[in-house]
Design a protein around this nucleic acid. Structure first.
Lengths: 225, 225
DNA sequence: AACCCGCTTCACGCATTCTTCATGGAACCA
DNA sequence: TGGTTCCATGAAGAATGCGTGAAGCGGGTT
């Protein structure tokens, strides 16, 4: 899962970021409305957390603009102005929820979860995806192979989740890398190879069939043969 | 994915082309407004990159005309005139974004991605092309023959994609070669012949019917034999 | 501090893919 | 029909990219 936080109070932003990372999100941070706009338009996220009071361009303006651009990623507004009026305005403009500051991290995360669940691609309560003997429960963040749950590390989970959400699609290395490492982070493509190797190992004898290499391009999760 | 670049500065055009090819796009180049018009009207693209200052017919005129023809492929305008007036004009005339020169390739690509995604969400145009028993899913980067997915190598894929995207059109060897090998790379035309042979083999008994040789010129993908 | 776990780095061998080459065959033109 | 050019083909060599195991590193935990 990927989240974008647009928040100018650095400390708070950092706290939220860490909390989400702990929950295995990949997080991008933007400090003002313009930067936020840039990220929101150019990356794919599962959730946007927007502060209302922002430099350059406030949260409402940002929200309005990205909706005009046809981006319907779920949005949670964060604001100090705990007024009902704002809430109404926000929901009208296409926010999915609204969390008044100050908030507990737990509460925020609960909202994040619920909003994502509500609006996720499938639109259903349960986000369970199954191919053959492999099952992915998006919200419990669990893979099952036959009846055994797979013990995956964070990066391994992120990779397999991404691939399984795009079945039979050849995913270029760069795309996976963008997904796994937030803007600006360094990495070496060796890393991806190693993770793939480890995932395959955990997937057992069918590992190589499920996660196929497309030489010179990337990897693909195969639903059959 | 397919892109058309209409740009008269050869060096820049070549740079953009290579960048997009690296991102697995199939790219056509046109050097003036007239040629650009021809391509835009006769081929389908996922994105058009139009220079404003062009010989014969400028980018705005081109944009206007193709919109009049009912072609709503997303368009990004490239221009040296980084004026707000232009931007407004462009957006009014149906450009989807606007990138002032000089730009970084990364930035340009970010815009390309975002514009495509935006129009994808609303448009839901599937990038699936089918002739007879052969199907190409551009988005997934997968060929299917009957129900079997074809296991093509990178070069093989690039060749067949290019030919299938220009059905019944005789593609000169040199054009294919330009498409496959970046400027300056060495090759021998033997290579192309060998790849064609291998593709045909993978296509099975109809291989030669689908991929026809045009003696002295090049090859053509035939939609019917 | 010592440990553990997961992420990253590295070097090497191997397999696939790309390219080269030699040969025979098909199309084209007098 | 013979000569010429261009193309198809299979096999073999060269280049490339991937898989793998092992080792380093660093943050978090006890």
């Amino acid at each position: 899962m990927r989240a974008l936080i647009v928040e100018d109070e650095e400390d708070l932003a950092e706290l939220v970021k860490e909390m989400l990372q702990e929950k295995h999100f990949t997080v991008d941070l933007a400090a003002d409305g313009e930067e936020g706009m840039y990220y929101a338009l150019n990356q794919e996220y599962d959730i946007l957390l927007l502060d209302v009071m922002l430099p350059v361009q406030d949260g409402w303006a940002l929200l309005k603009k990205i909706r005009q651009q046809g981006i319907w990623t779920p949005v949670i507004m964060l604001t100090a102005l705990a007024e009902v009026r704002d809430r109404v305005q926000g929901l009208k403009m296409g926010a999915d929820d609204y969390v008044p500051k100050p908030f507990h991290m737990d509460e925020l995360f609960a909202r994040v979860e619920s909003v994502i669940r509500r609006t996720h691609i499938t639109g259903q309560k349960q986000n369970i995806i199954r191919f053959g003997s492999l099952t992915l429960d998006l919200f419990r963040r669990v893979f099952q192979l036959e009846d055994r749950t797979l013990e995956l590390t964070k990066k391994e989970y992120q990779i397999l989740e991404y691939l399984m959400l795009h079945p039979d699609e050849v995913i270029p290395r760069e795309k996976l890398e963008e997904h796994l490492w937030a803007e600006g982070e360094e990495f070496w493509t060796d890393v991806l190879r190693t993770h793939i190797k480890n995932i395959r190992k955990k997937l057992g004898k069918d590992g190589k069939k499920m996660l196929q290499t497309v030489r010179g391009v990337g990897y693909a999760f195969k639903t059959q043969h």
